[in-house]
Write a protein that binds this DNA or RNA. Structure first.
Lengths: 230, 230
DNA sequence: TCTTTACTGTAATGGACATTACATTCAAAT
DNA sequence: ATTTGAATGTAATGTCCATTACAGTAAAGA
């Protein structure tokens, strides 16, 4: 990982199921059905009313949102062990985001009922959940504010830094971003357009800050990227 | 109120302290210290670590956020009976928003400790809290997306509609917005600039959609405003 | 292997606003 | 009542970036 661990990094890895007894772990294991998922699979759609939450064990999932005007925005990308869709077990409303598999993986789901049974046995679980929700809110709020007030170049640079936390692979002095994202994906991540992303990426490439390696991006001058993101 | 009650309206008025016994009410009353607040008073600052939440009984409070680059944005405006700052009792992080009194009023505060004592006696309180937090997130997320993808005129129109829910006073066929906001305030609400707001307000005035009455705005053609906000 | 679809590259045009720069009016403080 | 600062009005200039329009390239399916 290229940068020092941030508060966010620690919090992201905060496990709501830590400090549990073996029996409790077994119970959770029994309740949460695991299944493999394939790229492109939609776990839930905006508007869905499924009452469950998801635990990603392996793979990559993106959380997207479609505005009434047809703009798609990627709110977050999860990889490795992480938890998402938690709103489903706590809120009565319908989902206002979709979750789509970006890279094959494994997920567990837990229904609202099972979660509530669990909460009875493990008090304090809800509080942990609220912390995760609070963190989510903080993250998304800050992301959207960045999108509002910063240029495309700055937004892209920041996106690289975020992705490096999860997908960095050292590559002669720099870091390869081991996640396949199209220019359209980047555009949806930073609320811009495909064309502008293409142009900006090539500009940064010409300036020597990054390079293309097949379908992957290589960050060659991390410090310069960092100062762009500021 | 000019428009039919929205889901948001209902949810906003959802009271976490409903369905309680008289004793429980008395307890809460004892725990929550009430005090008058004056316009301009800062209830908490971004970065503060106070562990309490706030209940507004009367008056108006704005929730603002300052970006690292000096942009101020108003995330929400609360009026009448409402609850805010709830993150303080659930999250360990420092506050990432400020709460500032816009119009004189009365507020109660409750510390994290008292809230936790209360939670012991009234299970289900945390769940109610998570619903409020979820609603907040939904609201802010949608607001920020609107700011990202819509024009200044559309954003202003939508802001009027939101404010009408809380501050509408009938005024010969239209509605007077009984809240004092400067053009700078409107700019901070819609992530624009003072000058652009002034120009747009005057454009809408010239088109007959609204008018100025002292320090207040009068929405003259609600339907047209609504179709602008779309 | 070929075909077709998805993705990338590039350039021109235009539009929505921020920015800058003042002027004017209004309200609050002394 | 006068001064001073805050809020508003208006216009010009410029910039970032969406939009539009193609062309070229890679990948996936038949």
């Amino acid at each position: 990982m290229p940068q020092e661990r941030t508060k966010l990094w620690y919090l992201k890895n905060l496990d709501i199921f830590s400090h549990l007894s073996d029996e409790q772990y077994e119970l959770i294991d029994k309740l949460a059905a695991m299944r493999p998922v394939k790229k492109g699979e939609v776990l839930y759609f905006q508007g869905a009313t499924d009452k469950k939450f998801y635990m990603l064990k392996k793979g990559v999932v993106k959380i997207t949102k479609l505005t009434p005007h047809g703009n798609e925005i990627i709110l977050d990308i999860f990889s490795g062990v992480s938890l998402f869709g938690e709103i489903g077990v706590l809120n009565p409303q319908e989902r206002d985001e979709s979750a789509i598999v970006v890279e094959d993986g494994l997920i567990c789901t837990m229904t609202k009922e099972d979660f509530e049974r669990l909460v009875h046995m493990i008090p304090g679980l809800v509080i942990k959940m609220t912390k995760i929700i609070g963190l989510r809110r903080w993250k998304i709020e800050n992301k959207l504010l960045d999108l509002l007030y910063r240029t495309v170049e700055q937004r892209l640079a920041k996106t690289f830094l975020n992705l490096l936390d999860d997908f960095a692979v050292p590559r002669d002095g720099g870091y390869l971003l081991k996640i396949k994202l199209t220019h359209k994906d980047f555009a949806d991540l930073i609320a811009s357009t495909r064309e502008t992303v293409t142009a900006t990426l090539n500009k940064l490439k010409n300036e020597g800050l990054l390079d293309f390696e097949g379908k992957y991006l290589v960050i060659k001058q991390l410090e310069k990227i960092r100062s762009l993101a500021e």
